[in-house]
């Protein structure tokens, strides 16, 4: 099986975000980059499938800058075989990113049997790339997947929707699967894995190699700014149990008369 995993590199979740002075994006100089947390579930799922299907290969694909290839090296240290990077310092929109991923998959020379990714990247939070990529490759897709079972050619997928309900899909043949937390427990890269990863092939492509140009851009982002700060609220001390009843009664009253939400 040819398994592809699309990964993105994003600022660590603890990052304090500061917009640039001109509002064109955010300050990136002191950011710690990590593999998008949802993509870890996709890499893990690929490795689990590979373990059960001899002769399978896991190819990781990423679009982004070369400054730091952490996400690709991490994926290969976890056990992926090969990586492709479409190099760009531009902030692409979801359509351009999907087109670049499609181009890189085609350049790999392998026909995908399965494409995995995280359900969303935690920086742009678009939840678009896997579905657009599926449409561009004329493949079915299932997103927000928390359950994956493979039985021969048949894959049963559980997609999480509102209220924690699950839609159960059955698919045969190549599919794009966008993974959610809860699907599996991603492994840590072992030290030998990290050493081995350094020798695994990483091919770098340009945007023009994968047929993406500025004419593909659909979304223009500007005016990056911090959300307005709330004025300070009221704080009540209720550590003393005797005081607690009075405080609770006052807060409930304020929710009704001042905030008018109850």
């Amino acid at each position: 099986m040819n398994i592809f995993v699309c990964v993105k590199q994003v600022p660590d979740t603890e990052t304090k975000i500061t917009p640039t002075g001109d509002g064109s994006f955010i300050e990136t100089s002191s950011i710690k980059w990590i593999m998008n947390p949802y993509d870890e579930f996709a890499v893990e799922q690929a490795l689990l499938i590979k373990a059960d299907n001899a002769e399978s290969t896991v190819t990781v694909v990423r679009v982004g800058s070369t400054q730091d290839t952490e996400a690709l090296r991490t994926a290969m240290a976890m056990g992926a075989d090969e990586a492709f990077l479409v190099e760009t310092t531009e902030n692409l929109d979801s359509y351009m990113t999907a087109k670049a991923l499609k181009g890189a998959i085609e350049k790999s020379g392998k026909t995908p049997d399965l494409i995995l990714s995280g359900k969303q990247a935690i920086d742009s939070d678009a939840l678009q790339v896997p579905q657009i990529l599926a449409q561009m490759l004329d493949l079915p897709s299932v997103s927000v997947v928390v359950g994956f079972e493979k039985d021969g050619d048949k894959i049963t997928l559980k997609r999480e929707v509102e209220g924690g309900a699950l839609e159960v899909y059955e698919v045969t043949g190549p599919t794009v699967v966008a993974c959610n937390k809860g699907l599996n427990t991603p492994r840590y890269a072992s030290l030998p894995g990290i050493m081995k990863a350094k020798k695994k092939p990483l091919t770098t492509l340009s945007l023009s190699d994968v047929g993406v140009s500025d004419g593909d851009r659909k979304l223009k982002f500007s005016n990056f700014q911090l959300p307005p700060e709330k004025p300070p609220g009221k704080k009540f001390d209720a550590m003393d149990e005797a005081a607690a009843a009075g405080v609770v009664s006052e807060v409930v009253g304020l929710l009704r008369t001042e905030a008018k939400v109850i």
């Binding site: 304090k16 917009p19 955010i26 920086d123 979304l219 982002f221 500007s222 990056f224 911090l226 959300p227």
Partner: peptide, 17 residues
């Protein structure tokens, strides 16, 4: 108005094409 980083910052978005 498009929130980025789960709302840690906001951006203006326009659509073209």
């Amino acid at each position: 108005t498009k929130p980025f980083f789960a709302g840690k910052c906001l951006a203006k978005v326009e659509i073209q094409g």
